[in-house]
Simulated assay, not measured.
Amino acid sequence: MPADFLSAESERRCRRLLAGATARLRARPAAAAVLVPLCSVRGVPALLYTLRSRRLRGRHRGEVSFPGGKCDPTDQDVVHTALRETREELGLTVPEEQVWGLLRPLHDKRKATVVPVLAGVGQLDPQSLRPNPSEVDEVFVLPLAHLLQAQNQGYTHFCKGGHFEYTMPVFLHGPHRVWGLTAIITEFTLQLLAPDTYQPRLASPKLLKG
């Protein structure tokens, strides 16, 4: 397991691996974008998550997510969407130069394209954030070491008409269960950061096709 996911060497490697897809995806329209905040909490590399407000409308209220949302016509591209939404939801300003690159896009059940934007946000005290209460009920972090432990990883098989369709990853034993598209994005991130350590649970779900 890498000793430091936030090292300059790790960042250079990730930026290099993502460079081609990032240039291609930034030129394409998308329905939504999320920021995947890679941070250090008291020296421990972690991912920052939000718990969406239960006062929101729609199917995803009360769920674990990364900060983000729908692309606005005034946004320059998906990177600016993710950075704007993060600032609006958490009061956290992330400079564009701290963006490492874009991960593989996903498609939700409505076939809308969601683009994950990976960024290193540096040292962070989650308690110092001021989440917008109309959008976020809670902010929490999960150390990468926790996410990489097999006992904290699970999966759910989905069937339709009695036939297996796909497998979705689930991350357990944190403050909240990480599942759905957020778990898939977490899986993409772990595969990028720790390719020799993380064994993916994903089995060609239709949600990713497109």
Rank of each mutant, 00 (worst) to 15 (best):
G101T: 02
V99R: 05
H60P: 00
M168P: 00
S10G: 13
E135N: 08
R42P: 04
R130A: 11
L25W: 14
G210D: 07
M1Q: 11
D4M: 11
E11V: 07
V34I: 06
P67D: 00
S7Y: 09
Q199A: 12
L106Y: 03
R26G: 01
V64Y: 08
T186S: 01
R55I: 00
G210Y: 06
P169R: 08
A112W: 11
F188M: 11
L6Q: 03
G91D: 06
P200V: 00
T189K: 01
L103D: 03
C71Y: 00
G161I: 10
L202D: 00
R104W: 09
A150P: 10
T50D: 04
R177T: 13
G122V: 07
L190P: 03
P131R: 04
V99E: 05
R87Q: 12
R42K: 13
F66H: 05
R42E: 11
A21M: 01
L48Q: 06
L190A: 00
H173F: 11
E165R: 15
A119E: 06
P116Q: 05
V36Q: 01
A30P: 06
L92P: 07
V115K: 02
R84N: 02
T113L: 13
D196P: 02
V178G: 01
V170Q: 13
T186M: 02
R52Y: 03
A21H: 00
S10T: 12
L18I: 00
Y155L: 14
A31L: 03
T186R: 01
E138A: 14
N132L: 10
E85L: 05
P200Q: 04
H157R: 15
Q127R: 14
T50R: 04
N132E: 11
Q149F: 09
G68V: 09
A27Y: 02
T189R: 01
Q199N: 09
H60V: 08
P205N: 09
K109E: 15
L103R: 02
Y155S: 15
R110S: 13
K70T: 11
V139C: 09
P73Q: 06
T93I: 08
V34L: 03
E135T: 12
R87A: 12
P116W: 03
L38E: 08
F171D: 05
V36R: 01
F158P: 04
Q149E: 15
T156Y: 10
A119F: 03
L208C: 11
T197I: 06
V115E: 00
R13I: 10
S53A: 12
L192P: 02
Q191I: 02
V141K: 06
A31G: 08
S53F: 10
R12S: 15
R201Q: 11
K160H: 14
P175V: 07
L47G: 07
A3M: 15
W179H: 13
L118V: 04
V141Q: 05
E96F: 03
D77Q: 01
L92W: 11
W179S: 13
H173R: 13
H173N: 14
P67K: 02
